[in-house]
Computed example of a mutant assay.
Amino acid sequence: MSEPIESRLPADTLAKADFRHNEYAWRIIDLPEVIEAARALGLRNIGGQLQIRTPDAIGECDWVQIDACQLIPPILPWDAQVEMAANVALQDLQLLKAEFNFAREIKEAFPEPVARFIESGGTLEDAIWFVWYVDAEEV
């Protein structure tokens, strides 16, 4: 399995991620840094979904998602796509934060894994992640 493109992000950004099943996920608070790091490297932010990530569970709340490329015309120059996707991603993140209570979404969607995690000493906040994808220009 090849390295995901997200592995090109700076080491300090990757250090904040949870990497499992060839996917990187970050805390909600770290997503703006991820988005800006991708932009700075000329990587296009694709988006991602809210996830529960505990030692024994990974699950997506696919209704809580960002699709930063959905409305970006693929005929635009790559640099323009990178800029537009980063701007859309940052804006959509703010909209999601206003629309959803992430802790409630995780707790309602995954009650058993959340209960097990909390019983083992974890906190609900430690189970809340956002998987994020980027891509690079094909050459």
Score class of each variant (00 low, 15 high):
residue 27 R to E: 14
residue 27 R to C: 09
residue 27 R to H: 14
residue 28 I to C: 10
residue 29 I to N: 14
residue 29 I to A: 14
residue 29 I to P: 08
residue 29 I to G: 12
residue 30 D to F: 07
residue 30 D to K: 05
residue 30 D to C: 03
residue 30 D to L: 05
residue 31 L to F: 11
residue 32 P to S: 09
residue 32 P to C: 09
residue 32 P to Q: 13
residue 33 E to R: 08
residue 33 E to M: 12
residue 34 V to E: 15
residue 34 V to H: 15
residue 34 V to P: 15
residue 34 V to Q: 15
residue 36 E to G: 07
residue 36 E to W: 13
residue 37 A to V: 07
residue 37 A to N: 13
residue 37 A to P: 10
residue 38 A to L: 08
residue 38 A to S: 12
residue 38 A to R: 10
residue 39 R to H: 13
residue 40 A to V: 08
residue 40 A to L: 09
residue 40 A to S: 13
residue 42 G to W: 13
residue 42 G to N: 12
residue 42 G to F: 12
residue 42 G to Y: 15
residue 44 R to C: 02
residue 44 R to N: 03
residue 45 N to S: 15
residue 45 N to T: 08
residue 45 N to F: 07
residue 47 G to C: 11
residue 47 G to H: 12
residue 48 G to S: 10
residue 48 G to D: 10
residue 48 G to L: 11
residue 48 G to C: 09
residue 50 L to W: 08
residue 51 Q to S: 09
residue 52 I to W: 07
residue 52 I to D: 06
residue 53 R to K: 06
residue 54 T to L: 11
residue 56 D to E: 15
residue 57 A to C: 12
residue 57 A to H: 15
residue 57 A to L: 06
residue 58 I to E: 13
residue 58 I to R: 15
residue 58 I to F: 13
residue 58 I to G: 11
residue 59 G to K: 11
residue 60 E to R: 12
residue 61 C to S: 10
residue 61 C to V: 09
residue 62 D to A: 09
residue 62 D to M: 09
residue 62 D to C: 09
residue 63 W to R: 03
residue 63 W to N: 09
residue 63 W to T: 06
residue 64 V to T: 00
residue 65 Q to P: 07
residue 65 Q to D: 13
residue 66 I to E: 09
residue 66 I to A: 11
residue 67 D to L: 01
residue 68 A to W: 00
residue 68 A to Y: 01
residue 70 Q to D: 01
residue 70 Q to R: 01
residue 70 Q to K: 02
residue 70 Q to E: 03
residue 72 I to M: 00
residue 73 P to T: 06
residue 73 P to Y: 01
residue 73 P to D: 04
residue 74 P to A: 00
residue 75 I to E: 01
residue 75 I to Q: 01
residue 75 I to P: 03
residue 76 L to W: 01
residue 76 L to K: 04
residue 77 P to F: 07
residue 77 P to V: 06
residue 78 W to D: 04
residue 79 D to W: 08
residue 80 A to C: 06
residue 80 A to H: 00
residue 81 Q to G: 01
residue 82 V to C: 04
residue 83 E to K: 00
residue 84 M to V: 00
residue 84 M to A: 04
residue 85 A to I: 02
residue 85 A to D: 03
residue 86 A to M: 12
residue 86 A to E: 14
residue 86 A to R: 11
residue 87 N to F: 01
residue 87 N to E: 08
residue 87 N to L: 05
residue 87 N to C: 04
residue 88 V to C: 11
residue 89 A to K: 06
residue 90 L to A: 13
residue 90 L to H: 15
residue 91 Q to I: 00
residue 92 D to H: 08
residue 92 D to R: 07
residue 93 L to N: 14
residue 93 L to D: 15
residue 94 Q to V: 04
residue 95 L to E: 13
residue 95 L to A: 11
residue 95 L to Q: 12
residue 96 L to K: 02
residue 97 K to Y: 05
residue 97 K to T: 03
residue 98 A to L: 06
residue 99 E to Q: 03
residue 100 F to N: 01
residue 101 N to K: 03
residue 102 F to I: 01
residue 103 A to C: 11
residue 104 R to C: 07
residue 106 I to R: 02
residue 106 I to W: 05
residue 107 K to V: 05
residue 107 K to Y: 10
residue 108 E to K: 07
residue 108 E to D: 07
residue 108 E to L: 11
residue 109 A to Q: 08
residue 109 A to Y: 10
residue 109 A to M: 12
residue 110 F to G: 00
residue 110 F to C: 01
residue 111 P to G: 00
residue 111 P to N: 04
residue 111 P to A: 02
residue 111 P to T: 03
residue 111 P to S: 03
residue 112 E to K: 10
residue 112 E to A: 05
residue 112 E to D: 07
residue 113 P to D: 13
